[in-house]
């Protein structure tokens, strides 16, 4: 038996394993099973095998493909901005600034709240109504108001609010990593006459690989699963412009009673997330090897 727990190892692991099996493995097994049947709210008991019919339907239904596309756009843009904005922010707030603790708290603060609350808040801030904060300011300054919730703009408006909320979280992860980088490396670089930019790209960035990996993998997976911010800000609209995999699964798979099709979408989604995670892991490992 591994570790110092010896013969008690199994006793400690079994409760967690049972919970994991009951609440994760078993439901996922059922999801796969249902995805091959004709399970709907109108046919909850006498299930027949329809094999890949539901999977064909997933790829032939424009709404489901819209959901998949929007989820991918959301995940990539949110994660990308988290890294692009979070890294330099962490680098700056790792310097000897008098207000660094205050600034770190301010940037991290939005991440403390639920996405649902933040979503409702931004819905009012971005509103086209007279009470909409941003448009009131624009109009007050003599500018035209902006409609943040058109079919073309709504998804990006939501992404912008989520970048605002989650960049501080990424910054904290990067900061933790930065603080583990040996000061001697920077001193040596400075003695050699390296510029600030060169120090960032040649020392800081390569050594940030572990934290970037955490932020990218969790950001992409979390982004693909987005539901709460969409639900609170647009509910998937206008039309179906901001539907994501989770909102489609909720609408079609649960509310409309197409349980089997929803299950097939869930399985497809699982495969997509698995592939993306594997790809990111692979790329990060290569980066890590290149550095070492």
């Amino acid at each position: 038996m591994p570790g110092s727990l010896g013969k008690y190892f199994a006793i400690f692991i079994v409760p967690a394993l049972i919970i994991y099996a009951i609440f994760c493995i078993l439901p996922f097994g059922f999801t796969i099973y249902y995805s091959f049947t004709n399970y709907t709210d109108m046919n909850p008991t006498n299930l027949d095998w329809v094999w890949f019919e539901n999977y064909k339907k997933v790829f032939q239904t424009p709404l489901m493909m819209t959901g998949m596309k929007n989820s991918v756009i959301y995940a990539i843009l949110l994660t990308g901005f988290q890294v692009i904005l979070g890294l330099p922010l962490a680098a700056v707030l790792n310097q000897k600034l008098k207000t660094k603790n205050l600034l770190r708290s301010i940037f991290f603060f939005p991440a403390v709240f639920s996405s649902l609350i933040i979503g409702y808040l931004w819905k009012y801030i971005l509103s086209s109504a007279d009470s909409g904060l941003i448009n009131s300011i624009l109009i007050g300054l003599g500018m035209d108001s902006v409609n943040f919730f058109t079919s073309k703009a709504a998804l990006y408006s939501i992404i912008a609010t989520q970048v605002w909320q989650w960049t501080g979280w990424a910054m904290v992860i990067f900061l933790a990593n930065l603080q583990s980088v040996a000061e001697e490396l920077y001193e040596a670089a400075r003695i050699d006459g390296a510029s600030t930019g060169r120090i960032f790209f040649n020392i800081t960035l390569p050594l940030m690989c572990p934290s970037v990996k955490i932020v990218v993998v969790t950001g992409l997976i979390g982004g693909m699963k987005v539901f709460d911010s969409i639900y609170s800000m647009t509910g998937g609209g206008p039309g179906n412009a901001t539907q994501t995999v989770m909102t489609v699964m909720m609408d079609k798979g649960i509310s409309d009673g197409f349980y089997a099709t929803g299950a097939a979408l869930g399985v497809c989604f699982f495969v997509v997330v698995l592939l993306i995670s594997a790809l990111v892991n692979n790329l990060m490992s290569k980066w890590s090897k290149a550095i070492s």
Partner: peptide, 20 residues
């Protein structure tokens, strides 16, 4: 108007109730 896509039911009710 498309601007109304950025307004929810409660905000619209406010516009009516306040005479806007």
């Amino acid at each position: 108007t498309t601007d109304m896509l950025g307004i929810d039911h409660t905000q619209a009710l406010d516009e009516f109730a306040t005479g806007t």
